[in-house]
Amino acid sequence: MKCRQYNVKIFEIGLDDPNSFRDFIDANLVLIKNHLLSLKGTLDETTKEFLDERGLKYVCNMELPLPGRGVNEFCLTKSDESSDSKAEESSSVITDEEPEEFKMDPLKIVKGPLRSGQYIQHNGDVLSTDRINSGAKIAAMGSVVALGKVDGDISSAGDCIIITPTKKGNILFHGTRIDGEKLIFPLNLIRFEGDDIVIKPISKKEFN
């Protein structure tokens, strides 16, 4: 029997106002496209078609085994734009613009060592040229390339992670924890092949 454990990010959203719901989904599609939606309320046919058209995965009115912690609330009204959520500071989660395509922020380059307690959250790709120390974290909606030693945390929802070997780092690719024992190459390329996450060597020459 094959058994896998995944860390899944779930967005729990109310269906009280279908129009607001659809606006919210379109505005935040880049953030939620790779995550599971837990919908609360009545799912009408129009909304169902809307979700299916965008290829979103969802469950409706399911009791989730949430322990009551680690829940971030996203608000729909403009007056709540001043929320102190760090995700909202760095990536425009709430917008009036109609998103015709996914808008990712430009590449973020982290030049010095990322020290304990420092946290990079970026709606795009991240390139770290130096160490990522224990207690530091990079969370990117895009790919992450880490050329220095990684003892901290990396989370990527992008196309790939390129990383040096690490046994201390906590590496999450699309919510799935990557076993450090499998990062055996001088430079490891982590990406999807079909539904499977694969780790392949990448030469620095190839990388250049």
């Binding site: 020290r115 304990s116 307690g117 420092q118 120390n133 224990s134 207690g135």
Partner: peptide
């Protein structure tokens, strides 16, 4: 020791 180094690393980050 690792705990001292991590705390120093944090302190340097705040200093910077």
């Amino acid at each position: 020791e690792v705990s001292s180094i991590r705390d120093s690393d944090r302190a340097i980050g705040i200093l910077d």
